[in-house]
Design a protein around this nucleic acid. Sequence first.
DNA 1: AGTATGTGTTGCAGTATGCGCAACAGTGGT
DNA 2: ACCACTGTTGCGCATACTGCAACACATACT
Lengths: 247, 247
Amino acid sequence: MSQTIQRAATVLELVSIRPRTQSEVAEVLGVHRSTALRILGTLGESGLVRRRPDGTYGVGYRLTWFASLASEQFELRDLARPRIAELGAECGHTVHLAVLEDDRIVYADKIDQPGTVRMYSQIGQPVRLHTSGVAKAILAHVDAEVLERMLDGYAFERFTSTTLTSRGDFDDDLAAVRQRGWASDDGEFEDFINCVAMPVRGPDSKVIAAVSITALRAQAELDELEGLLPRLAQVCEGISKSIGWRP
Amino acid sequence: MSQTIQRAATVLELVSIRPRTQSEVAEVLGVHRSTALRILGTLGESGLVRRRPDGTYGVGYRLTWFASLASEQFELRDLARPRIAELGAECGHTVHLAVLEDDRIVYADKIDQPGTVRMYSQIGQPVRLHTSGVAKAILAHVDAEVLERMLDGYAFERFTSTTLTSRGDFDDDLAAVRQRGWASDDGEFEDFINCVAMPVRGPDSKVIAAVSITALRAQAELDELEGLLPRLAQVCEGISKSIGWRP
DNA sequence: AGTATGTGTTGCAGTATGCGCAACAGTGGT
DNA sequence: ACCACTGTTGCGCATACTGCAACACATACT
């Protein structure tokens, strides 16, 4: 991995969230001021970053151009989007789409609800494998060797009292997910958030993605979310069919 | 300038246009296959690039997420967009918005017309200063020291028989632009394309951007585009006022 | 079945690149 | 006047990046 490129990517993330001063960038990256300015300068030359009139650095027009050019490369997300948007509108909870990419699972889309707390999840970032519903919904169905590769050296870190912290417990949970067809996050990462999730299948019936319904426990306990499973199954089947899966 | 970051930015551009194989990436960058894979690997770790099921590399979800997060950072473009979209719809020609960024001018937005030839211009990329209408509309009004900085070492390269190829001729043209209030590209970069452009002012009355109407000569000669100047002036004034300019 | 092509991986030696540093000038705010 | 921050720059140096070669694997074609 290239540390220079990683730093540049971090800069892009920083300035996407909000425009930053070059001191902030240096501080977050842990580099010298002149190093930060060099990175910003090169990103500026490339059009990915721009210096705003107030002296802070924000995202450049070129980055939005690239996103626009690339918009047709997200076939699965594009096909899923209207369905998960509708699901979100109906249930009033946050809906996530996560996809399996080689040996990791990343959030591909998210339907937020106005007036609710923004969830921790960030599109494009990897999913925490042992606590998130979407990850379990996918991992329950991947080939054994893919599962081994993904869990090789994986740290089952405890976050809450319900976090699964051993490979054995995790495997048992995956077996249960396989059996019942859906996964959950029972406050395993943050004890005030729970969700239910189900898999999405590709044309060859392999599980390639998952959709979840996530809520604050104060808004909906797990058993209430379980009541949404028939509708969630319908949405996942609709997405699967739209990308070529046939039961 | 960091060559490593420049390479990464080139990769992002390549994969935005369309997904690429790692051999293509290596070839375009002029580097060894393993170097290309390392760059792709780091961009992949950062979520900016992803390997597609067919083995090609495309844009990652995270890049689109950054663009989405940053969407509110483009105040000028956002305010201008409905106005230039309406202008484009009315006149049926391509409309550009270009902005002055420190010592360069970049395309910030573009309204294409369905059924017409796509123009060369790419959002986020610098404008060619001596041939483009938007550049002349801006340069005619910048402070003398800014103009000196921007033209220091500038090559007045000839592209067509109408290209201005000396600093003297260019200054004369800028003086004429200042006097009449609008600039043009009279087939100076590509002899089959012409345009008219006018400046956009910021709250302090300084020119910070410009808008142009561009057409194939086969569709509209320059004098026909000149007939659109009153309407273009109206649009530029509307944009200027929306960002705080008062005449 | 054999072949060709492209992909993915990896360790290592070499060097080109990226970095930190310090110092200076400028700007804006108090 | 003072302070904090920004922007610039040249230079020495350490290391991060690179090319290389070789291997295994997958796919497509014959």
